[in-house]
Write a protein that binds this DNA or RNA. Structure first.
Lengths: 216, 216
DNA sequence: GCCAGCCGGATTGTCAACAATTTCGTTGCC
DNA sequence: GGCAACGAAATTGTTGACAATCCGGCTGGC
């Protein structure tokens, strides 16, 4: 997800519209539940309505927008209850990834995880929640990657995209990084110890904490 | 010139095309890796190319077809390796559902599960693998439903759709129903005993068997 | 004989106009 | 004064035509 906004040369209009609209939603440029009128978007992005329409269909499949027959599209709002359900799914899927990563990751990859752990510890010590949140995301991405589980990876990316707004709120809660850090370190330790069972339980414990926090 | 299958009410063309094309793929009417030319499909289903195109985008998101830029669509072939990865995801997600169902299901719903269990036992005793496979599917559907986990349900439906071909082969393997039955009964027992932990481990044991069988 | 470049057919991507549907304000009636 | 039917505006769904792209085979030169 690094270099995505590249109009580049042969970039098809639909993909461009898709990328820009997606990023706009993820960055919060679109208010929750905002109506997405195809004509307006088409003019705004400089593409035709057909391209916007195709992009909207894609985004609907990703769970980012909601479309109702003959009634238009809106950015989907994720209720707290839904966020909990999504996080439960993330919990078991990332648990699977962590267990597989504990078995399949190379020694060099395990070293990467340890490095991330120290960086996260430092970020928390420095009281830098933004950096911590980024590292957090990076850690989870790496674990998924090391697991070699393409299917789980795909599902998790979809689920994560739906949670951007909630995650943002969560990271800024006081005291949260401290607890989160402990859980993450336990996860890293279990994976580097090549203990799949332990890695899975650590991930579950972490997400149980996230769910708790989501509910206030 | 088109004795359509009821355009029925105001069924939008795109949704109709989507449903019919999806069913055609799931029923195996389309050979694996078969090319899906938009024009042909449009004529075949009596809708315009735009509708087919929208349907194909949807089906791609569901993992049933594969689309390459300017090169067309084909029905996606799921390798054994992929089927294993998908089944691993199903394992953890259905485990989650079973655990939640053990807590949330009503007594009447639990009775339904018990009934399904006896029906499955009978089907195996009668040597009727087709009925057994149907009941099997029914059982899993019920558990997911009783869990109240809409997100997991949605993910599982998508994953299941990708496996139709493999599942079909699996059910006919000799000796498989017997082992599968045992595992299913254990799952039902744990859920009706309101034992979430036990339900999850039972589901996992079952899917571990499925994965084993998938690999030959 | 072999490779580079080109051309034709096929297929997807894009476009602008048209039709169908919904929504919301308005009018007429009770 | 409230309610129901009506109608106009807005928006999505659909259509057919056009442009861009890709694949295969062909030709020409070396």
């Amino acid at each position: 997800m690094s270099g995505q906004a590249r109009p580049s040369t042969g970039e098809q209009a639909k993909q461009l519209a898709f990328a820009r609209l997606r990023q706009a939603i993820l960055r919060g440029d679109m208010a929750p539940a905002q109506r997405l009128v195809e004509n307006e978007l088409a003019e705004q992005f400089g593409v035709t309505r057909a391209s916007i329409r195709a992009a909207l269909i894609d985004l609907e499949a990703q769970g980012l927008v909601e479309r109702i027959r003959n009634r238009g599209s809106r950015v989907r709002v994720v209720t707290v209850e839904e966020a909990v359900a999504i996080t439960e799914c993330r919990m078991v899927l990332e648990g699977l990834c962590a267990a597989k990563a504990a078995v399949l990751a190379s020694d060099g990859q395990l070293a990467d995880l340890t490095d991330l752990g120290t960086a996260m510890t430092k970020a928390v010590a420095d009281g830098d929640p933004v950096t911590y949140s980024d590292l957090n995301h990076e850690l989870h991405t790496r674990v998924r990657e090391f697991s070699g589980q393409r299917t789980a990876l795909e599902l998790l990316e979809r689920l994560n995209a739906q949670l951007v707004r909630h995650r943002f709120q969560l990271a800024l809660r006081p005291g949260r990084p401290q607890q989160s850090l402990k859980e993450h370190l336990a996860m890293i330790e279990a994976i580097t110890a090549r203990d799949p069972q332990g890695a899975e339980t650590a991930v579950r414990a972490h997400f149980a904490g996230v769910i708790e926090a989501l509910r206030h």
